[in-house]
């Protein structure tokens, strides 16, 4: 089983649209009926908007705990407020109240409260779902707005998707990753055989690509690059290509700026099924062909 993660660094480079197209293209080629999909962008889980899957299972996701003060036994000494390093306890006309959004769940206040008036409570921070999509089972999750622990939720989505791939003996786990370089990205990258970076030739896109490539390398995963919206700034494309060349990273090709992609999104379809002959559709198909060749070659890690 191969695990391919799609990343971008900067948001809005077209990562999810490309992932959806890959899911479609995989259903046509040697990976037909061999794919499990995982949407690891739990802050902004958009793959389902394109794939419009049938929901099969859904469960609550419990994240970290938050402190809760029992006002009946609290003696209003303020010790909790003074030990909290997350500014999560506020005094409100004599009462001390925990702001559950700011609370980090460290429980320092619990241990310092002289009257034992503070307890930790588990929070439901999102939902975890298993669906059937046109192109294979989809594992996805939605973090409630402002929720915590998205790295943990990403890990759950990936673990379940991977277990499904192993159970059904499916050969490809396709992971739509989150933007940035932090905890959710680290969770999305861990254990991947290959990371494809969907970047754009903009000053911001190039800046973030470098940081994301450093992160991927830091975790020992091989990276490839494809350049979306390539015709927006040809000099930027050259900059990306020479950067990749200098760092031994293969570029798999370019995708032109094409508003048909937005139309496909509205239609709830992958661009390659909505308008296979569109400039972006053709280019993504070409990238996919090169990508599958690399995937076949890459030695699967011991997982």
């Amino acid at each position: 089983m191969k695990q391919l993660v799609i990343l971008s660094g900067k948001g809005g480079t077209g990562k999810t649209s490309v992932t959806a197209a890959f899911a479609h293209l995989a259903s046509l080629g040697p990976f037909a009926d061999q794919v499990v999909l995982a949407d690891a962008d739990v802050d902004a889980a958009n793959l389902q908007l394109v794939l419009r899957p049938q929901l099969r299972e859904q469960e609550e996701f419990r994240g970290g705990q938050v402190a809760l003060i029992d006002q009946d036994t609290c003696v209003r000494c303020g010790d909790c407020e003074s030990v909290c390093r997350f500014a999560a306890i506020d005094e409100n006309t004599g009462d001390y109240v925990v702001d559950p959004i700011a609370c980090d769940g460290c429980a320092a206040c619990v241990y310092q409260c002289p009257t034992g008036s503070i307890a930790m409570q588990e929070q439901v921070v999102g939902t975890f779902s298993v669906s059937d999509s046109r192109y294979g089972p989809l594992y996805h999750a939605d973090l409630f707005p402002g929720g915590e622990n998205s790295g943990k939720l990403v890990t759950l989505v990936k673990q379940r998707a991977r277990a499904r791939a192993l159970d059904d003996q499916r050969q490809l786990l396709l992971v739509d990753g989150p933007p940035g370089i932090g905890c959710p990205v680290i969770s999305a990258v861990s254990g991947a055989d290959l990371a494809l970076m969907v970047t754009e030739p903009t000053v911001a896109g190039i800046h973030d690509l470098r940081r994301t490539l450093d992160t991927v390398r830091h975790f020992g995963v091989r990276a490839l690059v494809c350049i979306n919206k390539a015709d927006l700034y040809p000099a930027g494309v050259q900059e990306i290509e020479s950067y990749c060349h200098a760092h031994g990273i293969t570029t798999l090709g370019s995708i032109p700026f094409d508003l048909t992609v937005a139309d496909a999104m509205v239609a709830g379809e992958a661009i390659t099924s909505y308008r296979p002959g569109s400039p972006a559709g053709l280019a993504i198909s070409a990238v996919w062909e090169r990508l599958t060749a690399t995937l076949m070659d890459v030695e699967t890690l011991a997982n």
């Binding site: 959004i101 973090l143 915590e148």
Partner: peptide, 14 residues
């Protein structure tokens, strides 16, 4: 603000 809708966004808005 950063993208997404989790803790860093909340912290930025506070």
């Amino acid at each position: 603000a950063p993208p997404g809708a989790s803790c860093p966004v909340v912290e930025t808005m506070r």
